[in-house]
């Protein structure tokens, strides 16, 4: 782990103007944290606590009202600076709650699309796409359109679409919220396996504490609105972890109740 964080938020704030009361309503205020190289950090917060607002700021879709965001030490976002392009030129990936696949593109064409618009789709990346499709068990479905795939398959496709173009940081906003328990379990294990292969830096937002513990190296919790970081919990459960037998880990109940107490 190098000392310089990959992604860092410093005293980040975002308010929206409340038209009725003519006042500023802060959704996020004074929020600071850092993600280090290769870390899988999970973020838990009560619903409506500004988790999505935070991810939109980090992904450069939205601009902060206060504070700054640094990527590899470089300030990429601050109220005084002109806005960066969304995703900071392909350096920050963002996997949302919906799969957001392009319905007119086949699975393969969807996974290749980011590479195609970034002008990087060459033989080696095509091979990488093949490997990723196989790694999540989607081989044989390359030429299917999204509507011909199940929810879990679409979710896998949307994850490998971002992994394929290899952004140094990946943000995930409750990506498995809409899945049934069974596919959720499998896809969580797929994600951890893919992460262990490539060691991306991941910030994974969820409201499910068990999921946060199962996936993360660290879990951050958020306060109620306006949101800032409330607590930080090291998940000292050795990897590889089995997501479905997580509850039998001796450390699990303690971590769970400490996080539970904060959200």
């Amino acid at each position: 782990m190098t000392c310089e964080p990959v992604l860092e938020a410093r005293y980040l704030g975002r308010f929206f103007s409340d038209r009725a009361t003519q006042s500023e309503r802060w959704i996020i205020k004074g929020l600071s944290f850092a993600l280090h190289e290769g870390e899988f950090v999970t973020l838990v917060g009560p619903s409506g606590s500004g988790k999505s607002t935070l991810l939109n700021l980090l992904a450069q879709i939205d601009r902060p009202s206060a504070g700054e965001i640094r990527l590899h030490g470089e300030v990429i976002s601050a109220p005084s600076r002109p806005g960066q392009s969304a995703g900071a030129n392909g350096r920050i990936g963002y996997i949302m709650q919906d799969d957001n696949l392009l319905p007119w593109r086949t699975l393969r064409a969807n996974v290749e699309y980011p590479l195609q618009i970034q002008g990087r789709l060459d033989a080696s990346f095509r091979k990488r796409v093949d490997e990723l499709i196989a790694a999540v068990g989607l081989n044989g479905f390359e030429n299917h359109y999204p509507h011909e795939l199940s929810g879990g398959m679409r979710k896998r496709a949307s994850i490998i679409r971002t992994l394929a173009y290899d952004p140094p940081v990946i943000l995930m906003d409750e990506p498995f919220g809409a899945l049934d328990a069974e596919s959720r379990l499998h896809i969580q294990e797929d994600l951890v396996r893919l992460w262990e292969l490539g060691r991306k830096t991941i910030l994974f937002v969820t409201h499910d504490i068990t999921e946060a513990i199962a996936l993360g190296d660290r879990t951050l919790t958020l306060t109620k609105s306006p949101a800032c970081i409330r607590g930080e919990h090291l998940i000292d459960i050795s990897r590889p972890r089995s997501v479905d037998s997580l509850v039998t880990e001796p450390n699990y109940p303690g971590i769970f109740s400490r996080i539970r107490a904060e959200v």
Binding site: S85, A86, G87, N89, N100, L102, I117, Q118
Partner: peptide
């Protein structure tokens, strides 16, 4: 949907590419 446009913008698509695709 705004999220479809955002997703594509995050991949690095400009205004023209978003309109076209």
């Amino acid at each position: 949907g705004p999220n479809l446009i955002r997703t594509v913008a995050i991949f690095g698509a400009g205004k023209l590419e978003i309109a076209r695709e």
